[in-house]
Amino acid sequence: MHIPDGYLSPQTYVPLYGASFVFWSIALKKLKKELSTKHVPYLAMAAAFSFLIQMFNIPIPGGTTGHAVGAGIIALLLGPWTAVIAVSVVLIIQAIVFGDGGITAIGANCFNMAVVIPFVSYGVFRLMSGNSKSGKRVSIAAFLSGYAGLTLSAFVTGLQFGIQPMIATGADGRPLYAPYPLEVALPAMVLEHLLLFGIVEGVVTVLLLRYFLKNETDMIYALSVKGS
């Protein structure tokens, strides 16, 4: 899902930097107001947790393993605005230290994974779980929140790839950036997430949420907000 440098034209990555910047500013302002002086260590630890969640390889049916992006479950546990900053910090560190994702694509990657996933996941969970605080309905809501968040993020990424041949071509008509048109980029990105990665994300979200429901319900932001 991490977009490397070279795939997005400046017409795409500059506005996405702008969009991410707007979300970062709102999130920082909101969290500073809510948490006061504690916001720095709180967000730093949230970011560390967000990074570490990706380190856990989970056995999935079929004999293979996969890891979750974790942005959805972080939104449920800590709230969507905290997830915006936590996942963005992780993506920046991944781009700077590990070369995962491009420098010019940091804005796009943050928008796709640190903005789209947390808000979609959180919204889907709140909508699907209704007033329930435990039970099957909450589990289904958790699965759908992880699944929908990642799949929609893949859709947005596919859209960004797919519009490149329309907005940036050379004099001879060849695409200058991501070469696949919408009718190829969109199904390629969405189908694999609909059929595989989305399910892994959904399963991880359910597993974690169920663990917290059983042992530490008060730590789940999405449920504590509901109760207040």
């Binding site: 920082l28 720095v40 730093a44 630890m45 560390a48 910090v89």
Partner: peptide, 16 residues
């Protein structure tokens, strides 16, 4: 504050 968050989380990523 944003730089501090990045620096702090980077340090703790290695510890954790």
């Amino acid at each position: 504050s944003f730089l501090m968050i990045i620096a702090l989380s980077y340090k703790y990523i290695f510890i954790f």
